[in-house]
Design a protein around this nucleic acid. Sequence first.
DNA 1: CTGCATCCTACCAGATACTG
DNA 2: CAGTATCTGGTAGGATGCAG
Lengths: 131, 131
Amino acid sequence: MCDNYDPTKCQTVSEMLARLGDKWTVLVIMMLGDGPQRFSDLKRSVVGISQRMLTLTLRSLERDGIVERTVHPTVPPKVEYALTDLGRSFGEPIRALGGWVFTHHDRIQTARADFDRRNEVDAGNKLIKLG
Amino acid sequence: MCDNYDPTKCQTVSEMLARLGDKWTVLVIMMLGDGPQRFSDLKRSVVGISQRMLTLTLRSLERDGIVERTVHPTVPPKVEYALTDLGRSFGEPIRALGGWVFTHHDRIQTARADFDRRNEVDAGNKLIKLG
DNA sequence: CTGCATCCTACCAGATACTG
DNA sequence: CAGTATCTGGTAGGATGCAG
């Protein structure tokens, strides 16, 4: 894909893919798709995420211009996160990918089951050979 | 996204995203997009990949039904890897994502530069405060 | 409430050496 | 040629404690 393109851009593609690959990024983006959210709201809705990971994830997304951070200098502090235009447009290809997995979910599952079954058989054969 | 859907499928979505996130999967899929390739061909074309990682990557993709493995029982051994139909169709959303990054590459880069610049300034302010 | 710093662990990529 | 087996360093990420 990157053969006849700017290698710098391919670098960025890899980076964004790696970003998507981590456990939390997509979940956070999806949550923010419903509208701006406070830090603790996100912490609650993205079940299982640690404070640290939420902070790190949001920082990365903010740096890439996907998410916008707004601090209300009140006490107690209130910080809101929202998708930028860029972030919203990023959601589209992500959803496309999610959609693909949904439609092909069954084929993937059966492929895995078949593979695992074959491997068990192979393991059995190996045992026979060894015995 | 997964709110009103089968949680099992969402699990699969996460898994596939994680798959995409790793360093080599997408590269391998792209290489195979040009047609079937032997193990050592892939090793050569996917620059920097180790034997071990190539094996692992191909096994995962084979398990998910993305890649098909054909052994020719000759000597020396010859093993060919090819995309399945599922694999080829998987390429589409991936390309869509790659395309998105390409088109928005500049915005991402400037967002990052801005963010980093702001942070340097902040760091400077902190130092002033501390001094 | 938000978020940084620190510590600690488990896991994984990479290198190397060996096998059919 | 196409793998497997084993070791090791680096890192992602959770838990905890402190601060503004």
